[in-house]
Amino acid sequence: MAKRPGGKSILASFGSFTQAESNHPDAAASEGQKSPPPAQPLARVGAGVIGATQRSLSELREERDNLRALVEAGGSSELDPKLIDPSPFPDRLPDDNDADFDALKKIILEEGQKVPIQVRRHPVVEGRYQVVYGHRRWRAASDLGIKVKATVLALSDRELVVAQGIENAARQDLSWIERALFASRMEIAGIKARDIRAALSIDDPELARFRSVCRALPEDLIEAIGRAPRVGRPRWVSFATAIGEDGAALTRVRKTLSDDKVLGLPSDDRFKRALAAVKKPADRSRSDIEIKSPGGKVVGKATFSGRDVKFSVTAEQAPAFRAFVEEELPALLERFFAREGEG
């Protein structure tokens, strides 16, 4: 069973919560026990605060009971991987290499599958299932041609994404952009904001940042960059903001990512290249270009600075080069103005 960060299982957390309830003054009163009088007068608490606390406790009890019912309803089965489809809400981008996945397949082949995956019955297609979590174990079983151990639950879309998010939060191995993309896909599918926040254990400001980044960056561009596990929120937000402020930046990034050499880099490095492509080329106040002979010998240079264009060549080449420029300049200017659309 998946554990929450800190090492407690879901059921252990249920037990802790139940014990907390039994220690609550309301619980003591229900058992006929009298609460000891307070040592000093207590400050008055507003009715709104009391009401909010009661509602919070009620929601916690309801959530506890619902989760317990879901866990107890699950049954362990061995399923044909071909009958299972991925989650309708993808939360992962492809890894840069398959070394870890190959290691997982080897362990399952040699020692068997220790931990069942979790699936739900397909909401539309009879006899099929959808992965809640455990995609890599499901893929490994499929590649190995063996059945996969699975816990089958009856989950709504909301329950699926919350369970999927809780499992990922426990592992804490989703990168920031994977979490943002997961939130975006849930939102597109009509999942309510409160359920997205619950699935990812985030607050409103973080959800707003997820939204702004995924609205500025097309999904195919994010997929081309990849997981970028070392790239956190600040750089993704900066990247998205820069693209939003420069209409031509997106074209430059796409061109950069289309290079086969860039695509072969790890995803963190692909992000760095994409971020560099966003920045506009700095206007150079001065540039020099070497003038070379067909044999590669440097015979001079051309200098471009502001409104000035200067050529300098060796003393040996100077007379002939000056005569050549004077002869070719009228035709060169004609071509220039024709391209600029001036008559």
Rank of each mutant, 00 (worst) to 15 (best):
L155N: 07
L257T: 13
R194L: 14
I191N: 07
A240E: 05
I166D: 13
A189N: 11
L257R: 13
S258A: 12
R209A: 06
A180W: 05
F210E: 06
E159G: 06
D246L: 05
L144Q: 01
E219A: 11
E167C: 07
V231P: 06
L275V: 12
G145S: 01
D203A: 13
S258I: 03
F239C: 13
A141E: 07
W236H: 12
S267E: 08
D204K: 14
E187A: 13
Q172Y: 08
D246W: 10
A249N: 15
A199M: 03
A141N: 02
G145E: 05
S267W: 05
R227K: 15
S258L: 05
A170N: 03
R194Y: 11
K261E: 10
G244A: 13
A224M: 05
V262I: 14
A208C: 08
N168W: 06
S156L: 01
R227D: 08
L275F: 15
K149R: 00
G232V: 12
N168A: 07
R252E: 14
A274C: 09
E178V: 06
E223S: 09
L265I: 03
I177L: 02
I202D: 01
C214L: 10
K149I: 02
G244R: 12
E223R: 12
I191V: 15
E159Q: 13
L221D: 09
G226K: 02
